[in-house]
Design a protein around this nucleic acid. Structure first.
Lengths: 122, 122, 122, 122
DNA sequence: GTGGTCTAGACCACG
DNA sequence: GTGGTCTAGACCACG
């Protein structure tokens, strides 16, 4: 299993699952159309309750990152919407604000973003 | 007062205060050494519980964004640590992952980050 | 084949079949007495399990929308019962409630219903 | 309590809660800004689990019908979006199709919709 | 006191 | 076999 959990974090477990799958898709570790583990198997492997895993999957589905086909399992589904939601923008604003206050110049921030974006190319 | 609240948000109020002050500092709206309102006055103006405002200030102090002087005044304090915490990096990874899946190319992401960073120059 | 499926929908496939046939009848695309494809052929064309198609046909038959003749053929059958079931009424109530809360005036709702009813005349 | 449940229905309990609250808002029984019962009290009164009630509230919140304020309880919140979602439209199409096949003329359908819309005026 | 999260365990509809 | 629903009961963060 490719998921790791921080049980002491204040980020809820279902959100940790969601976040890691999103990053997995972006990094190419999870490819378009690829089958995700079933709710049950992921729950068994990770020791996390099925309800919690199910909640993560439902959130991912609602956000359009995955598709749960009644006939089979759950697959990765990438809809390139080219839309940057207000939430994403606000999160980015906060993120870059913190980096800026830490003393990073615009060039350093862009270089960091470039590197993070590029992490997918492996 | 420059703070705006979304009482229906799932972001806790103390975190909304913290985030807006951080973005205020990065954008230059709050300058180094500038005096922040007292816990009491901020609570009164915003209708938010004193305990909540206090919690936000404590968090900001702990993170090094503000300072409490001997007389009880609270001032903005920028220590350019040049350190990018693992939390910031993880948040950036998630952020850029979402943008990437939305279909933004590396150039578009960097251009967006450039713009967001630049919003401070006003 | 005139049916389209959303495999990611939370509406079960057999219900999607049923709904589309009902709307097909109302719109005139499926005329009284018209022959429907056999369970087998519909299943083959659509890639949907025979059991699922069969379930949809059984439901339609039970509701009086289709008829199975002696030779096994399935035909559209319209009995104008002039009866509005409690389920239909409840669904309409919910429907109109949502439109109303969205801000549509009575005139706008009636105009929309008029238009939707009229879609059959093509 | 104003909610009634059909425990034998294939409509999930959380959806029955959601639907009745939506109809309650449209009918004026629940006014803008009015306080809804807490998750716990509704669960106690109805004999339904808190998780189930909570799920209904979260759905209503996501749809913009209610607002859960961290400082207090849950209130009715009407945003007149004037937008008819594709889901609403599709549901209306199905609904009107069934009425039409039952033999109702356009006038009869519109008269019924008029009556249903008007049920709020009491 | 409030809603949000989580578990263990059960049952069910769909396919 | 799959995801979806539900319960009883617990704990926690927020305010």
């Amino acid at each position: 299993m490719f998921l790791k959990f921080d049980f002491g974090s204040d980020v809820p477990l279902y959100m940790q699952i969601r976040n890691q799958i999103v990053m997995g898709i972006a990094s190419g570790k999870l490819a378009e159309g690829e089958q995700l583990p079933t709710v049950r198997s992921l729950a068994d492997e990770s020791g996390i309750n099925t309800m919690t895993v199910s909640k993560a999957y439902q959130l991912l589905k609602q956000e359009g990152y995955i598709n749960t086909d009644r006939r089979g399992g759950t697959t990765v589904c990438i809809k390139e919407k080219k839309v940057v939601s207000e939430d994403m923008l606000e999160a980015l604003r906060l993120n870059i604000s913190e980096l800026r206050i830490a003393g990073l110049s615009k060039e350093e921030v862009l270089s960091l973003c470039d590197k993070v974006y590029g992490e997918a190319e492996k």
